[in-house]
């Protein structure tokens, strides 16, 4: 029984990281109504920037965390400029946006492959102190506590920006209707840029966390997270913030439990099967009714 609780705890931690990754993904869909398939590549670059700040510059981990968030945010803005803005100017359909973001993802991955010479990197030993606590018979590492704490802080920050600042109000206005927002004097393209920056920064934070938790950083690490990110945002409802949070937690628990008690190959089949079912039964996601801040478009 302790084993089950231990796995649920581990799933909760993993799920928090998935939620962090998926929040940026779903934010862009909520505001711009396009899927950004370069999100995984931005995440991967965040991990690399964090790694190089620690290994090459020798700076402490929290500096690396902030550097990774800033860098991934800027890369994400660049993705917007290259892949999405030219298409928006022409009013192209969602199909074109998906294709061009896949193209940019390939460019980013290829650049990372050249920069890293196709090697798998690790954070140096002792970057993070290895300490374990026993709470009610469960083993909790300091790392897990810090991960959960940083996820909570970042999510609180995101909600604060979205719901308590003027920027957030503008973002929500653009999400509801770009035309009306523009008529009210909001610079829509600036808001799009800001949205991409926030989304990229969240991905960068997730990149560093995953890089440390699994102690491996390489140029292909974005792809599996992108695919799992799909499951998370479909579970919670495309474009929904609360949905992405809840979806991430559900995903993390189902994944750790099914890997622990079934098999890792079957775990993917279960998760993607779950997503397939949700799409058929309830395409607006499990939490589709709970959120009002962003619109879900079914075209």
């Amino acid at each position: 029984m302790t084993l089950v609780f231990q796995q649920i705890l581990n799933g909760f931690v993993v799920g928090g990281t998935y939620a962090l990754f998926a929040l940026g993904f779903t934010l862009i869909f909520g505001v711009l109504h396009v899927l950004n398939l370069a999100h995984g590549a931005v995440f991967m670059w965040g991990a690399f920037v964090g790694l190089f700040t620690v290994t090459s510059l020798g700076l402490p981990l929290y500096v690396a965390f902030i550097a990774a968030m800033l860098a991934a945010g800027l890369i994400s803005v660049l993705v917007d400029l290259v892949a999405f803005r030219p298409l928006r100017a022409r009013g192209s359909p969602e199909f074109a946006a998906i294709i061009s973001s896949i193209g940019v993802a390939q460019i980013l991955m290829s650049l990372a492959q050249i920069a890293s010479q196709t090697q798998v990197y690790r954070f140096p030993f002792g970057t993070f102190p290895i300490v374990f606590y026993n709470v009610l018979g469960l083993r909790i590492s300091l790392q897990q506590i810090v991960i959960v704490a940083s996820v909570v802080v970042l999510v609180a920050l995101l909600l604060g920006i979205l719901f308590a600042t003027s920027f957030g109000r503008q973002i929500r206005a653009v999400a509801i209707s770009e035309r009306t927002a523009a008529l009210l004097g909001i610079s829509v393209s600036n808001i799009h840029g800001l949205t991409f920056f926030i989304s990229g920064a969240l991905a960068g934070a997730a990149g560093v966390i995953i890089g440390i938790a699994f102690n491996s950083v390489h140029f292909l690490m974005g792809e599996p997270y992108l695919l799992r990110g799909f499951v998370v945002i479909i579970l919670g409802g495309l474009g929904s913030i609360t949905g992405a949070l809840a979806g991430g937690l559900i995903f993390g628990m189902v994944q750790t439990l099914s890997i622990a008690f079934l098999s890792s190959a079957l775990s993917d089949a279960i998760l993607f099967g779950m997503m397939f079912l949700i799409l058929l039964v309830r395409p607006s996601g499990l939490f589709g009714a709970l959120h009002r801040q962003v619109r879900v478009v079914r075209q």
Binding site: V82, A83, L87, S92, A96, I99, S100, I102, G103, V104, A105, Q106, I107, L108, M109, S110, L111, Q113, I114
Partner: peptide, 12 residues
Amino acid sequence: LLVNGVLMVLVI
């Protein structure tokens, strides 16, 4: 990979 990506973006 790089050439593929650049081609995809330019073409679309």
